[in-house]
Design a protein around this nucleic acid. Structure first.
Length: 677
RNA sequence: GGCGAGAUAGCUCAGGUGGUUAGAGCGCAUGAUUCAUAAUCAUGAGGUCGGGGGUUCAAUCCCCCCUCUCGCUACCA
């Protein structure tokens, strides 16, 4: 394996429109922190970079909703998250933010360099424009009626009620959320990064040179490359972000995906004048810690940017994790289904390491994983308390009882002692190998094996028995148990920094270098240790019940929450109503439209004719079950081609809160073609 | 529908190159033990490796088909 002189560790920049939750931690920040703490402990030159990602449309929207400026939003969450990370012991060397001046400069320079090198293509497209407010509108700024579910407050990119993804042109009665006026299409110029130009290079760099990447990462990249890459716009019409630094670009900013990863660079610049050493020297190993939603940006787009710029190094690895669920349900900010870091820190003061441990032991490394409070409790009580805390406690208590806290001398080691001591270097190596291949769960398990080894040793050697018959022998036993304890302070340090700091004060030692691990003379004979406390406390059922209840309350709130009903529509004249030709009809044939998930092709008898309707209902109805069913239709809707099939009309359905569809039909059998009025 | 990832013990997961009897932690059962926060240590039970075909002397692993979960994507008048 190539040896590197220094390390640059980046962690995905959290988006500054909400607080950090356990999903972020398990996927990104806990692993990256363990990794960088381990490297520091080994004495490597390593910097760990993170910061708030503060641009983009969602922040401007949230600001608008709350009637504050975007700056106020990002200031708020930057402060909350920065503090939460600090309190939790995520030891970034810098937690910067993309609204900093240095970032504007860095991002502008980066853009200009690519611009001047002719790396961009320009394209004029039609975008929606608000004539009253005098600005272009991002999709999110356009609202209208969802053509799918009738929700009148659907956004131009998505209807929040039925989850359908939309484009602004889909909306019925679109209006700008800025001024309320009707948006018009207007031409606008944007710059594009032609990813396709770099496809051959990417194929080699990833598919051939980085076969060691995690299968989920590698597979996803391959999938993108095989589908063929498209040029991607690097600018947007928006007033919140880094302005595009060229002429005739008023009102245009760098698209947030372009701007955000450059945040890693500007944060490094802010941290050290030596930043180029980390970004431009082949002897630096760069590692991006991210979640799986970010794979394409960090493995394809950002590398293309760096490559196009020409002077930067590329990541050696991108250990993306999958997602963490919470109590069997997807973590969701909008549904408040999460364990928020700042709340955890309040509810469980001093228990940072417990959460670090629980999240690392069940990190979603190879597939989505589920966090439950019951498991959290079990990890604490059965592992941290019972195995680690207990071993440390019995060793320190015995030492204090027998020797008044002085480390006793080692006598002649018997074969049992020697075999135990010989295991230490092996365990240390196991942890190293696992960490260096980004298997954090495995690394933690191996690290805990040191404590297991200690417990087993004590049980076998039985110093509390031997003390009655051979006190000299007990000195050796306790010395060895103490050396194991000292090893624990090193090997578990990257995972449990708070507890190991505590343990060091009890052992009365300062922090030891990783390379000391495995040695059996870390504590000198006669060294005086302090009175210990408890390393971990049991977590009782009531604390867990309280947390689960909190979540159940959330669930109840969500379930009982009234369906978000579309507001009443403007009244229409009777004449307008009579323009609609609503009729009864009967389904004659029904089949799935090939290569679609939702579409059914129906042949129906409308009384006046037999026609074909394509309808997006396949997820809720078996085709056969519809045959013979009476339905209601809009008979005079403009025909439209869907997946190449001409659809003449629309079937009326009632949609429940959860998206389930129900046929709207006459109560009794009536003739096909009967008018509905 | 397409693409990617996954499905292994009650739970969470290993199983790098196909090769004895498929492993670990937690949980469970039994025994030992009492220095320790009812902690520890030992032993054990527990598996149709999602289902079905195929290749092979040999398949958890390779190939094909299917089912289910997650993500990306297409589709919704």
């Amino acid at each position: 394996m190539k040896k590197f002189k220094r390390y640059l560790v980046t962690s995905a920049l959290p988006y500054a429109n909400g607080p950090i939750h356990i999903g972020h931690l398990a996927g990104v920040y806990v692993p990256s922190d363990i990794y960088s703490r381990y490297l520091r402990l080994r004495g490597e030159d390593v910097i760990s970079i993170c910061g708030s990602d503060e641009h983009g449309v969602p922040i401007t929207l949230k600001a608008r909703n709350e009637g504050v400026t975007p700056k106020e939003i990002v200031d708020r969450y930057h402060a909350v998250n920065k503090k939460a990370f600090e309190d939790f012991g995520i030891a970034f060397d810098i937690y910067s933010r993309t609204s900093n001046k240095i970032h504007y400069e860095t991002a502008s320079e980066f853009f200009l360099k690519l611009y001047n090198n002719g790396e961009f293509t320009e394209k004029t497209t039609e975008q929606y424009y608000d004539e009253e407010a005098g600005c272009f509108l991002a999709d999110r700024y356009i609202m209208g009626t969802c053509p799918h579910c009738g929700n009148e407050s659907a956004y131009g990119d998505q209807c929040e009620r039925c989850g359908t993804s939309l484009s602004p042109s889909d909306l019925i009665n679109p209006h700008s959320t800025v001024s309320g006026s009707k948006p018009v299409l207007r031409e606008t110029l944007h710059w594009y990064l032609p990813l396709d130009r770099y496809e051959p290079w990417l194929r080699k760099w990833i598919l051939e040179d980085h076969k060691e990447w995690k299968t989920n990462v590698y597979g996803q990249c391959k999938s993108w490359l095989d589908q063929g890459l498209q040029p991607r716009a690097v600018s947007r019409d928006l007033d919140w972000g880094v302005p595009v630094p060229v002429k005739n670009a008023e009102g245009k900013v760098l698209y947030v995906w372009f701007d955000a990863p450059i945040g890693y660079i500007s944060a490094t610049k802010e941290l050290t004048p030596d930043w180029e050493k980390y970004w431009k020297d082949n002897e630096t190993k760069m590692v991006h810690f991210i979640g799986k939603d970010n794979i394409v940006f960090h493995c394809i787009i950002f590398p293309v940017m760096l490559k196009a710029e020409g002077t930067y190094i590329l990541p050696e690895n991108v250990p993306a994790n999958e997602f963490l669920n919470l109590e069997n349900d997807k973590i969701s900010t909008s549904r408040n289904w999460a364990v928020w870091l700042h709340e955890y820190l309040e509810d469980f003061p001093g228990k940072q390491d417990v959460l670090r441990y629980a999240l690392c032991s069940s990190a979603p490394e190879t597939k989505d994983n589920d966090f439950t409070w019951k498991e959290f409790q079990a990890r604490n009580n059965n592992e941290l308390v019972a195995i680690l805390g207990n071993f440390v406690n019995r060793t320190l208590v015995l030492t204090n009882n027998y020797y008044d806290g002085n480390v006793p001398p080692v006598g002649k080691a018997d074969p049992k002692d020697e075999s135990v001591l010989k295991e230490l270097p092996g365990l240390k190596e196991n942890v190293e190998n696992s960490l260096e291949t980004f298997r954090f769960r495995e690394a933690l398990k191996e690290a805990m094996n040191v404590a297991r080894l200690g417990n087993k040793y004590l049980a076998d050697a039985e110093p509390w028995k031997v003390i009655k018959t051979d006190p000299e022998r007990v000195k050796t036993i306790m010395n060895i148990a103490l050396q194991i304890t000292a090893n624990i302070t090193i090997i578990l340090e990257p995972f449990l920094p708070f507890s190991m700091a505590k343990l060091r004060t009890w052992l009365n030692i300062s922090r030891l270098d990783w390379n000391e691990a495995g040695k059996t003379n870390l504590l000198k004979t006669g060294h005086k240790i302090n009175k210990p406390g408890l390393l971990f406390e049991k977590i009782e059922d009531d604390e867990i019940i309280r947390q689960v209840d909190k979540l159940m309350a959330t669930k109840k709130t969500n379930e009982s929450a009234a369906m978000i009903l579309a507001p009443a529509k403007d009244s229409v004249s009777f004449d307008d109503f009579t323009k609609l030709d609503l009729r009864t009809a009967t389904v004659l044939e029904a089949e799935k439209v090939p290569k679609t998930t939702k579409l059914l092709k129906l042949k129906i008898d409308t009384g006046i004719d037999v026609r074909t309707i394509v309808s997006g209902i396949a997820e809720y109805f078996e085709p056969e079950s519809l045959i013979g069913k009476q339905i209601s239709i809009v008979a005079n809707l403009e025909p439209r081609k869907i997946k190449g099939i001409e659809s003449k009309g629309m079937i009326l359905m009632a949609e429940d809160k959860d998206g389930r569809l129900f046929i709207v039909a006459p109560e009794g059998k009536v003739n096909n073609g009967s008018i509905i009025k």
